[in-house]
C-alpha cells in the first residue's frame, strides 16, 4: 500500500517541554487518518512539523518517499501538501476567490514581466486560474460569494473557504486542523460528508485533527492517539474505542471504570 506520509521517531521540544516525543506515524495514500488526543497532546505541533513550520529536533518525515523534515513550508506546499488551521487564517483583506487564487499559486508559473505585457501564457493562466477559483467556490458551496472580502464571510463559510484554498494547491495530502470546530451537529455532518467526498472523488489523502468523536469514528480509516507527545494507540475506530489507555488519557485514571458505565450506549456511525 503506497504511503503518503511516514514519520520516524519525530521529536520536537521547546525549551524543557517535549511537545512531540518520538512519534512514528504511517499514513496510507488515499485514506482518511485522524490524530486525536487530549489538549496539549502535541497534535498541532506534529502537523506543524509535517507541513514545515517547525523542524523536528529529531527524527525524519517522508512524503511520498521524499525527506521533508528540513523543508520550508513553501517547498512542502509545492510538493503537494496543503493545510487548514485551528484558528482560521485566511487572507482577511482579500476576496474569497482571491484567497483561492493564492492557494493556486504554486501551480502557476508567470512572473511580473508576463503580467506587465500580458503574454499569452499570462492570459491563459489567469483565465484558467479564475475558472478554477469559480469551480472550487461552487465545490465548497460558496458560489456567488467569491467577491466578498474573506473577513466578511460567516464563520462556516470561512472554514469552507480555507479548505477551498487548500484544494487549489491540487494537493496529494490535505491536513485539516479541527475542521468542525465551532460547528453545530448539522454543519458537522455536512463537513464530514464533504471530507469523505474529497477522498472518494478527488483521491486526496486526508490527515485530520479532530475532537469531535462522531466525526473521527465515523470516517477514519485509521486513528492515531497522542498523549503528552507520545503515540499511545493506533488502529481503527473499534480498536480505539475500547482501548483502555486511550480512555484513561481522556478521562484520567479511573476513567476505565467510568467508561464501563456508559459502554452500553451506542455511538452513532455516519
Amino acid at each position: 500500500m503506497p504511503v503518503s506520509i511516514e514519520t520516524q521517531k519525530v521529536t520536537k521540544y521547546f525549551g524543557g517541554l517535549t511537545a512531540v516525543n518520538e512519534v512514528d506515524l504511517i499514513v496510507p495514500e488515499n485514506s482518511i487518518s485522524s490524530i486525536i488526543g487530549p489538549n496539549g497532546a502535541g497534535k498541532t505541533t506534529l502537523f506543524n512539523c509535517i507541513s514545515g513550520f517547525y523542524t523536528p529536533n529529531k527524527g525524519k518525515i517522508f512524503f511520498q518517499g521524499h525527506e521533508i523534515q528540513n523543508s520550508s513550508t513553501e517547498i512542502v506546499a509545492k510538493l503537494g501538501i496543503a493545510r487548514t488551521y485551528q484558528n482560521i487564517r485566511l487572507f482577511a483583506n482579500m476576496t474569497a476567490i482571491e484567497n483561492i487564487l493564492v492557494g493556486h499559486h504554486p501551480r502557476l508559473t508567470v512572473g511580473w514581466m508576463d503580467a506587465v505585457i500580458h503574454t499569452k501564457r499570462f492570459r491563459k493562466e489567469e483565465k484558467d486560474s479564475i475558472e478554477e477559483g469559480r469551480r472550487l467556490l461552487k465545490f465548497v458551496g460558496l458560489e456567488g460569494l467569491g467577491d466578498n472580502l474573506a473577513r466578511n464571510l460567516p464563520y462556516g463559510a470561512q472554514r469552507r473557504l480555507e479548505i477551498a484554498r487548500a484544494l487549489a494547491n491540487h494537493p496529494a495530502l490535505l491536513l485539516l486542523d479541527e475542521p468542525t470546530a465551532g460547528m453545530n451537529p448539522q454543519e458537522t455532518d455536512q463537513m464530514t460528508r464533504f471530507i469523505r467526498n474529497l477522498k472518494d472523488e478527488l483521491g486526496i489523502t486526508i490527515l485530520l485533527i479532530e475532537h469531535d468523536m462522531r466525526v473521527v469514528m465515523g470516517i477514519s480509516d485509521q486513528i492515531t492517539v497522542l498523549d503528552y507527545g507520545m503515540k499511545i494507540a493506533e488502529g481503527n475506530a473499534k480498536a480505539i474505542q475500547s482501548n483502555s489507555k486511550v480512555i484513561e488519557a481522556y478521562l484520567g485514571p479511573g476513567g476505565l471504570a467510568l467508561s464501563e458505565k456508559f459502554r452500553h450506549k451506542k455511538t452513532k456511525t455516519l
Partner: peptide
C-alpha cells in the same frame, strides 16, 4: 492584477500562511 500582486497582498496579510501556500 496578477499572481504577483496577489502574492504580495497575501504576504502583507499573513506572511507565514502565504509561504505555506507556496509563495516564495
Amino acid at each position: 492584477n496578477s499572481r504577483v500582486g496577489r502574492a504580495w497582498l497575501a504576504i502583507k496579510d499573513d506572511q507565514t500562511v502565504a509561504q505555506a501556500n507556496g509563495v516564495n
